[in-house]
Amino acid sequence: MHKEANEVLLEIKGLFKKYDDMTVLDDVNLSINKGEVVVILGPSGCGKSTLLRCLNGLEKIQGGDIRYRNKSLVDKDVNWQEIRQHIGMVFQNYELFSHMTVIENILLGPVKVQKRDKNEVMEQANQLLDRVGLLDRKDSYPRQLSGGQKQRIAIVRALCMNPEIMLFDEVTASLDPEMVREVLDVILGLAKQGMTMLIVTHELSFARAVADKIVFIDKGKICEISDPDEFFTHPKTERAQHFLNKFQY
């Protein structure tokens, strides 16, 4: 959607990741420009979640380099608490903090971690909640919300930290079908505003609509990086062809 100045925000070079003896990511190279929306597709177990988790320091990597604004994230002295404020992440299982209300969930990071002024954050939170249509639920507890509502709150919680990049890992995968739409719409809205995003999803039509670039991974390797229209009409590799066929009945 947005093809802005080619300022590289995140660069992954020769990334290598193993669990015990099993190689999960093998020589992954990818760069993400500011304002770019990159969608990662691939069969289950190919390493999509692992890739996102590495970018957010939730997994240690065994080789290669990850650079954020040209600063390496594999140095020993990387301050992940600091980096994670710039690289937000939303997970599949909409984990809101169960003992806090919606607004407390949202304020925790900005106020306690970023030490921002509470009133200022509150104002931003209200705007974001309004945008996802949940302003009236700000004093609810997570257990009082539907899956789709929780996932939208989780997105707001991440956004309120003012991240520069957002990582989404199958955020609609555990939702009932009728709630998928409301969450995808929020992400589409972010894309329109020029948010830089790395999205893992199994919703192919959404992927096609939102992506500037499709990355197809199989067995821990990037097989193909394509323009979305090209990927869905003329996939370059046989594996991608095979993957797309599985979604057609």
Partner: peptide
Amino acid sequence: PKHQIESGKAIGLS
């Protein structure tokens, strides 16, 4: 749940 810890880390908690 382990997820609660990861969500906490994801918003930069020490």
